[in-house]
């Protein structure tokens, strides 16, 4: 992989997009040994509002720190899709939550039941972000599964390991079905 990957994880505040971005960056940077820059933008509210985290992964030195031509996009809400999908590259990969995102204006978008699976199989919607990470990693191979698992385990609250491991597993399962 000799390429700059620009990944944008978007949703609403409180859906764990920044946490997901940090986990993805840690997996790629610390465990996969890639160069990585992670940044985010958010409004003043702690919950609600559109929120995005961006991760740039490259085997070269990363100078410009922002994502402007998106290779991989995750949208967890319709608002996030509407606001953040405009600079997705034509050959970019898009993963959206099939429950919250109803209208997508381009073909080839992977609509996955991220929130639904989180609720039904794990019992809490909060882990939808981890399911999404599993799905993205499974589809794009932008990070290895081992590294992602290590990064998830190092960044989540103690006592939630089982639920998060389960969520990751679901994500990879969804990816396999794509």
């Amino acid at each position: 992989m000799s390429k700059r990957h620009e990944i944008r994880l978007s949703g609403s505040g409180g859906q764990g997009m920044i946490t997901a971005g940090v986990i993805l960056a840690e997996a790629a940077g610390v465990y996969d040994g890639q160069n990585v820059v992670q940044s985010q933008s958010y409004g003043p509210e702690a919950r609600g509002g559109a929120s995005k985290a961006e991760v740039i992964i490259s085997d070269q030195e990363i100078h410009f720190t922002k994502a402007t031509a998106i290779d991989i996009l995750l949208a967890m809400t319709q608002e996030a899709w509407d606001k953040y999908s405009h600079d997705l590259k034509s050959d970019g990969v898009a993963v959206v939550d099939s429950f919250y995102v109803k209208e997508v204006d381009r073909p080839g978008v992977h609509k996955l039941p991220l929130a639904q699976m989180a609720r039904q199989e794990v019992g809490i919607e909060m882990v939808a972000n981890i399911i999404a990470l599993g799905a993205i990693a499974g589809i794009t191979k932008v990070v290895t599964r081992e590294s992602l698992e290590k990064a998830v385990m190092s960044r989540i609250p103690k006592g939630t390991e089982d639920k998060n491991r389960q969520a990751l597993e679901i994500g990879f399962r969804l990816a396999a079905g794509v």
Binding site: V22, A25, E26, G29, V30, N35, V36, V37, Q38, S39, Q40, I62, T65
Partner: peptide
């Protein structure tokens, strides 16, 4: 803010 909130290894 760009550098303060950015993450790198």
């Amino acid at each position: 803010e760009f550098i303060g909130h950015m993450r790198e290894k």
